[in-house]
């Protein structure tokens, strides 16, 4: 009964008409648009707002292009800082040394880095921690047939009396291999007698390399070659 009543209404007949529906929708959109325009015109003039929105879009696009260029430029600057020629990277956790040129690995060598052990002077006045230092270094010296000038801790570790600074007892030959590359502050990349311990953390902070790898690293590097240790 009710349905029949509704169907008899003129409005229902009109709603069935597609053109009428389109008009309703267009009117709704027009009202919505007017509402939006009203919201904006209450703050700025409509003309200004349309103009600023368009300008903002333009500005954003320009800003986007500028930002892209700036980021590209920044990436270029960072890349420019990166070592360009040959350099050495030492991973003390994995006990490996990489001789690199750009992103290319020229040689990979198994090494021994610092043990991290602690030695205390029996007098209690001094303490040594045998870590390999981390950071960026330069090769400061290249030595063939290096002699080891034993520091005080070597005598303490061996339970011997510490000789004076100029004593011949401090000079040990043949223990550093055929070559040594000085990194400063008494740290070297050098050879080893204990090749079976390569790959383990056993040193007093220096970097021990096997004979063949040491020769290759020695020949490839120059004074000033960068060494990165982590």
């Amino acid at each position: 009964m009710k349905i029949e009543y509704l169907q008899s209404l003129k409005v229902y007949k009109r709603l069935k008409n597609k053109t009428f529906l389109k008009i309703i929708i267009i009117l709704a959109i027009a009202f919505l648009a007017a509402d939006v325009i009203g919201y904006f015109t209450s703050r700025h003039s409509f003309k200004d707002n349309i103009g600023s929105a368009a300008n903002a879009r333009k500005t954003n696009k320009r800003y986007l292009t500028e930002l892209k260029a700036k980021n590209r430029n920044l990436r270029g600057i960072i890349e420019g800082i990166s070592p360009a020629g040959l350099y050495i990277v030492v991973d003390t956790a994995e006990n490996v040394l990489f001789l690199k040129h750009g992103n290319k690995i020229i040689r990979k060598a198994v090494i021994s880095a610092g043990s991290g052990s602690i030695l205390k002077d029996p007098s209690g006045k001094r303490k040594w921690v045998f870590d390999t230092p981390r950071g960026e270094f330069n090769i400061q010296s290249k030595i063939v047939k290096p002699k080891w000038i034993k520091p005080d801790w070597a005598f303490i570790e061996e339970g011997e009396n510490i000789p004076n600074k100029t004593s011949k007892k401090r000079i040990a030959e043949g223990v550093l291999g055929d070559y040594a590359l000085g990194l400063g502050e008494g740290y070297f990349i050098h050879g080893t007698l204990y090749t079976r311990l390569l790959g383990r953390n056993v040193t007093h902070g220096c970097i021990r390399v096997g004979d063949e790898d040491l020769r290759a690293v020695y020949n490839a590097s120059e004074i000033g070659t960068k060494v990165f240790i982590f």
């Binding site: 602690i118 070597a154 570790e157 061996e158 311990l197």
Partner: peptide, 17 residues
């Protein structure tokens, strides 16, 4: 955490091979 080993003076090269 890891504990650092303490070297006993006079123990260097103990049976390294």
């Amino acid at each position: 955490g890891p504990k650092r080993a303490k070297i006993k003076p006079g123990s260097a090269g103990d049976n390294v091979n």
